[in-house]
Design a protein around this nucleic acid. Structure first.
Lengths: 159, 159
DNA sequence: GCGCTGACTTCAGCAAACGCAAGTCAGACC
DNA sequence: GGTCTGACTTGCGTTTGCTGAAGTCAGCGC
């Protein structure tokens, strides 16, 4: 038996990727900004309007997200306009798409309202809806009880 | 062109599954409680110790999560002990596993520390590590740019 | 019926987050 | 040189979340 759940008290969760991820993307407004950014929003006032938070909160969040390297602040210039800055997703930010998709899937199923989902993500090539699913490196689909939890290199054992 | 991103101002995000999901599971402690519950923790004081929040905060969170039907409060009895209650994941709670897994994958890649991940989820049958991946209903793997966003039944159009 | 223990609750008190309203600032256009 | 606009910043009052310490409560064993 290598499953760590069988002896949960022999190790601690102090070095936990889930916790560290939540420290970065753990707030509601950060996730909604990511949702908008993945939908193509780039400009400050569009974020304010579409996410529905006030300007001060948005300015603070965007600054945090640039510091966390989820977004990049890039100058651009529309003809006849002065230079402005837009916020573009970095690779680090774009790779949160599975998280947002998994959240959207779950919300569609378990927190739906009467009308059904407002938007559906589909595969560009075939038009079928996209879901976040669990799969192992050998290609098997994972269902609920198929998961083992084994030690990684960074595991902190308790004495 | 049906992609909604091309005309982002013609519809609003007021009916959004991501936002509704975040209203339920959007706080750091809720996610960490889910992490622990998925690792098998069930008792109040174990949650307090393993998640690392105080008793009052934990009591409040667990109550919220029971009200949100992520957890069920179930009486049990160990021999020689009085009746107690434990918190078990409901189906609604268990189905957040892809969200937690996607967060863990992302954290392992983008918010890792020097030591590497502390735990690894593996497939019970074959031992290979598990990841949350995007796939369409026709079975195609989705990479970054393959996503279209199309209207769902609950879309709120702007006039 | 007394003590013990696990599972909470109650009571300050602090700190971060947010909304609203108003102010600032830079640069293109006139 | 003045105006206008998008992109913020500042100030303030409120809400929310959390911590620590102390108190409560329900049984089982004795």
């Amino acid at each position: 038996m290598t499953d760590l759940r069988d002896d949960r008290d022999s190790w601690s969760s102090e070095n936990c990727s889930v916790a560290r991820a939540m420290d970065i993307v753990g707030s509601r407004s950060t996730v909604l900004i990511l949702r908008e950014a993945l939908l193509g929003t780039r400009r400050f006032d569009d974020f304010v309007r579409r996410v529905g938070v006030g300007e001060p909160a948005m300015a603070a969040r965007l600054k945090e997200m640039v510091a966390a390297e989820l977004l990049e602040r890039i100058p651009y210039r529309e003809p006849g306009q002065r230079t402005r800055h837009e916020y573009q997703l970095t690779r680090k930010g774009r790779e949160l798409l599975p998280v947002i998709t998994a959240l959207r899937n779950w919300g569609d199923t378990w927190a739906a309202n009467d009308t059904g989902p407002s938007v559906i993500a589909t595969h560009h090539d075939c038009g079928e809806p996209i879901r976040a699913v669990l799969r192992c490196a050998a290609g098997h689909d994972i269902t609920d009880g198929d998961v083992d939890i084994i030690p990684g290199p960074g595991l902190v054992r308790r004495d």
